[in-house]
């Protein structure tokens, strides 16, 4: 009987010791879990902030990229439209120039073109080419020029060239050519005139 109660006491003692140990372990584990949770919360919070910041950065980049590309596309479209309008303006100008053959101003222009072109090719005999409509006018101006300056040795070619107006001067041996047709003058001045037309189209003048 006494040995049973002693055994019971021992068992109870062991049990209570183990219980206390277990409770203490559980408390420690609970505490550790709480600590882990707190630490994880901090880490999670930091990770969350990092992800949000990174996403914000990406969104900002994407926005900048989309807005940038959009603006560039619009600007490029505008350039194409302006270029189209500039070409139309040149086309219109060409038509008007074709119809201006009889005007006094054109005769004056041709006179200065011929004088300048012949001297730019240099001394010696030169051949002058022009379009069919200007043939008589050019012949007359050359004759007047030769009267004024007998050193000018110029022959007007009877082979017409397909140009708006103006002349092309060649040295007699064909090694030098000076293209002073209206077509080539327009091409030469086109880059400068384009700016003026574009400014008009944009309402800047």
């Amino acid at each position: 009987m006494s040995s049973n109660s002693a055994m019971e006491r021992t068992i109870n003692k062991v049990l209570s010791q183990k219980e206390a140990e277990l409770i203490s372990k559980m408390d420690a584990a609970y505490q550790e879990s709480l600590n882990n949770l707190t630490a994880s919360r901090g880490k999670l919070e930091a990770e969350r902030t990092r992800i949000i910041e990174s996403a914000k950065k990406q969104a900002e980049n994407l926005k900048r990229q989309i807005v940038g590309s959009g603006r560039l596309a619009v600007r490029n479209q505008e350039l194409l439209i302006i270029e189209n309008a500039v070409n139309n303006a040149f086309e219109e100008a060409r038509k008007k120039l074709t119809a201006s053959g009889n005007k006094e101003s054109y005769r004056t222009l041709m006179s200065s073109i011929i004088e300048g072109s012949v001297s730019s090719v240099g001394s010696g005999q030169v051949v002058i080419e022009c379009n069919k409509n200007d043939y008589d006018l050019v012949k007359k101006i050359v004759a007047d020029l030769q009267k004024k300056n007998p050193n000018v040795q110029a022959v007007v070619s009877d082979q017409p060239i397909d140009v708006l107006g103006g002349i092309r001067v060649k040295s007699a041996d064909g090694t030098m050519t000076y293209d002073n047709t209206l077509d080539s003058r327009i091409e030469r001045l086109k880059p400068l005139i384009r700016k003026n037309i574009a400014q008009m189209l944009r309402g800047e003048t």
Binding site: G116, S119, S120, V121, G174, T175, M176, T177, Y178, D179, N180, S184, R188, L189
Partner: peptide, 12 residues
């Protein structure tokens, strides 16, 4: 742009 620019030469 001067009037005399654009003379073309063929003697290479």
């Amino acid at each position: 742009m001067p009037e005399t620019v654009g003379v073309e030469y063929t003697k290479v």
